[in-house]
Structures are given as structure tokens and as C-alpha cells.
Amino acid sequence: MDEILEALSNDARITPQELSKLTGKSLAAVKSDIKKYEKKGVIVKYKAVINNDLLDDSKPKVRALIEVSIVPQKDVGFDRIAERIYSFDEVISCSLVSGTYDLLVIVEGDNIQTVSNFIASKLSPMEHVRGTATHFLLKKYKEDGQILKKKRKMARLNISY
């Protein structure tokens, strides 16, 4: 991966000035690279990884991982039906996978009922959807390569040769 992308995927708040210092590229080159990546869609967006479990939220959101089996359509394969599914706001992630089912869909809702309703009223009855299996997520340990538990401080001595 390009150095700029590697640094940004680790810390999206890093400034072009800092990136220029860290990579040895000129500020102008860094800015133009970032623009290029944004335009091309390589950089999709800049976001924070949030550990919802630690939020003082009286109404925590509920997530479910849904295995969806579908019948591929002529000419467009799985893409069209995938688009119909991922266009719902409730769907936060959607991927085509190999194995015993076809789409892996992650859905978020205010509670179990809203998620269940979404599945029962929107997803399952959809044309070409053969079946679904739903797993509610209980606890998140790691997301986007980031371990959510707070890291313990390293036991290094403050000074050594």
C-alpha cells in the first residue's frame, strides 16, 4: 500500500503537512495524491472507529449479521439484488461471499424488533431472496484491524541502551 494511504488508514486526522514530513514527499505532492485517491474513490471517507459498548447510551443500537441466499439474475448475476439490499439505510455492510450462502449483510437497528421487522418485511420477501439466517451480534472485540479494548501500557523501561 502507498505510504500516504497506510498512514491515513491508521490515523485519518493526520494533516497533509505531517504526511509530507513523514513520507519525505512535498506538500503539494501529498495534497495532489490525496485528491487523486479521493477522486478515484480509493479513499471512500474519513471516519472514527467507535466502541459503542463504552457509550453512556440508554438506547444502544443492535446489530445483526445476516446470511442471505439469493438466486442470481440473468446478465447481472448477484449485483442487482445486492444493490436493492444495500440501498436500505439499515444495511451498514454488504458483501458477496463464497460458501453456503451468497450475501453477508450487516444490519443495524434501534432494537431487536426493528431489525427483525426489517428482515421479515423487507429482506426475506424480496424477489430472488431464497432464505436468510440471522445472527445478532453480542460483543465486538475488534473492528477494522483495531482491537477495541484499551491497550495496556508497554512495560518498557524508560531508558536503556
Binding site: M154, R156, L157, N158, I159, S160, Y161
Partner: peptide, 18 residues
């Protein structure tokens, strides 16, 4: 150094990776 707390140390002769 070793007796002091809250030091930012640039004196360490080992990686900061585990």
C-alpha cells in the same frame, strides 16, 4: 530517569512494538 513518573522517553534502546 527510572525513578521519575510521566516521562516522555526518547532514551529507550528497544522497539515500541510488542
Amino acid at each position: 530517569v527510572l525513578g521519575m513518573k510521566d516521562v516522555i522517553s526518547l532514551g529507550v534502546g528497544e522497539p515500541d512494538f510488542v
